[in-house]
């Protein structure tokens, strides 16, 4: 599937495909032409993806073929035991987690889960967790703490679910509790935004020693659509809203609100999932290696100091 701004690339790739078919059918050597077209496509891709607007990055972050949490776990871990339920209400399918093994290292991986087909999307509630999802996440984090295993959270949500029952069961309290508890976790916590990082629903599992964003993701207090509807009473100004919110990985790093950016393959994570898994695995293992030797007290102090320094104000 191609996004609107990828149309020129799509056209060239269709041409390339035709060329291959023609060469095969007519048995003519077109390798020279193929090579030249391939070069042209690569150039165009490089140019397109190095000049993305903020809204285009938002589009990429929501690409329907993009890997989701369970895809990453499958691509990175050699073993995975999924754990369910918040021991209170029910198992929230929009939040998944369990113990995993990465290169012989045991870790706890927790993340929002979106679905790919209509039915699965509904099952996963479009990646919008209910309070029990946040409570399940906290339960798993406490388990990781008990067994002294690092925690990795993968963030990909259009927001915490704004439903009637979510309010009855204390959506605000559930997220708030996670924020406070995550600061005191004795084990290393590594948080990675792999798609959408919408507001409190994202932050609810994103308090960590290292918070990183994949190159084509967004993270902010509100989605561009909702921002547009509040400011201009319609969703039509989402591009403008995305620009105003400065919600890309590059923006967030510049504002010192995250610790790093994880490079994606050319064209986005979905264009070469294997390469993406390899890169993310490398980043995770490096972070664990860096954080593990520290004393838990130091890590907690560093985590608190880092978030305490965030803000822009003048004092006179």
């Amino acid at each position: 599937m191609y996004l609107d701004f990828e149309k020129p690339i799509a056209e060239l790739e269709a041409k390339l495909h035709d060329m291959h078919v023609l060469a095969k059918e007519s048995n003519v050597d077109m390798s020279k032409e193929v090579k030249s077209l391939e070069g042209k496509i690569l150039e165009l891709k490089k140019e397109t993806y190095s000049n993305l607007s903020r809204w285009q990055r938002v589009q990429l972050s929501r690409h329907p073929e993009r890997p989701y949490t369970l895809d990453y776990i499958e691509g990175i871990a050699t073993k995975f035991v999924e754990l369910h339920g918040d021991r209170n209400v029910r198992d929230d399918k929009a939040m998944v987690g369990g113990f995993a093994e990465i290169d012989g290292e045991s870790v706890m991986i927790i993340g929002h889960q979106k679905g790919r087909k209509t039915k699965e999307r509904q099952l996963r509630n479009f990646g919008m967790a209910n309070p029990e999802g946040y409570r399940k996440a906290l339960r798993l984090m406490k388990l990781a703490e008990k067994f002294e295993k690092p925690i990795i959270t993968l963030i990909d949500t259009p927001g915490a679910f704004p439903g009637l029952e979510a309010e009855e069961r204390g959506q605000g309290e559930a997220i708030a509790r996670n924020l406070k508890e995550m600061f005191m976790l004795k084990v290393p916590v590594i948080c990675i935004i792999i798609g959408e990082g919408a507001s409190g629903g994202a932050l609810g599992i994103a308090i960590g020693d290292k918070v990183m964003m994949l190159e084509n993701t967004w993270y902010s207090v509100i989605s561009p659509e909702s921002c547009s509807s509040i400011l201009w009473r319609s969703w039509d100004h989402k591009e403008k809203a995305a620009e105003a919110l400065k919600l890309t990985a590059q923006d967030m790093l510049k504002a010192k609100l995250i610790d790093g950016i994880v490079k994606e393959p050319l064209g986005g994570a979905h264009n070469d999932p294997q390469a993406m898994f390899k890169e993310l695995k490398k980043v995770i293992l490096e972070a664990i290696q860096e954080l593990s030797p520290m004393k838990s007290k130091e890590r907690i102090a560093m985590r608190i100091d880092k978030f305490s320094a965030m803000g822009a104000y003048v004092e006179k």
């Binding site: 924020l179 406070k180 902010s220 207090v221 400065k246 978030f307």
Partner: peptide, 24 residues
């Protein structure tokens, strides 16, 4: 949260919660 400070506003939720954890 104040929309006009976008990511900065969001992180105030984290900052205040961190301080409350210390108070606790």
């Amino acid at each position: 949260a104040r929309m006009m400070e976008a990511g900065f506003s969001l992180m105030q939720m984290a900052k205040t919660s961190a301080k409350l954890a210390l108070l606790d």
